[in-house]
């Protein structure tokens, strides 16, 4: 089975990889680009652990083929902190609010929450909960995650 050469931009860097057309964008990120922060919890778009931004749009990387990334911009959890490692307010608030237990779903929640706050800087609790319905967490009961997102939103509005 012949592989296809793909050029894309990931977290601001131009990258190239060879993809079997059956491989997902998630496979490409994890196995070809060494970006293991996006997780596979289901492979069927039901858990959100592989959430990434594709041209700024929130998607599940398991529901995009690697070859579909050609020419597109992708942002993953690895691109969320600043170049000097300064954490995004969401990342900081997740730690402060104990919004993670096992941490496996955390990258997906952070990427999805970032997409929410870009679109809706002042969300209600209900809006946060519905936006994040596709991000499953089995540890926390969501309480502290929702609080962390709301608190980060408040801080970002104040800082803006």
């Amino acid at each position: 089975m012949s592989k296809i050469h793909v050029t894309a931009t990931v977290n601001g860097d131009s990258v190239e990889f060879l993809a079997d057309p059956r491989e997902t964008l998630l496979d490409a990120l994890r196995d070809h680009l060494g970006l293991i922060g996006s997780k596979e919890g289901c492979g069927t778009g039901d858990c959100g652990a592989c959430s990434v931004l594709l041209d700024g749009r929130l998607v599940s990387a398991c529901l995009v083929l690697g070859v579909e990334a050609e020419g597109h911009e992708i942002e993953t959890i690895e691109g969320m902190a600043g170049p000097d490692g300064t954490l995004h307010p969401l990342q900081r608030k997740f730690i402060e609010h104990a919004a993670l237990q096992c941490g496996f779903c955390t990258p997906g929640f952070l990427v999805a929450s970032k997409a929410l706050l870009a679109k809706t800087p002042d969300p209600t609790e209900e809006e946060v909960r519905y936006w994040l319905a596709g991000n499953l967490c089995r540890c926390t009961g969501y309480d502290k995650i929702i609080r962390a997102v709301m608190d980060a939103a408040a801080e970002m509005r104040g800082a803006a």
Binding site: L35, G37, I95, G103
Partner: peptide, 21 residues
């Protein structure tokens, strides 16, 4: 006290290595 967890930074930046990583 509610101190910050020591593995927090790795887990919010995607560096933490799980089974499949």
């Amino acid at each position: 006290t509610r101190v910050l967890r020591p593995d927090g930074l790795d887990k919010v930046t995607g560096r933490a290595r799980y089974g499949a990583d």
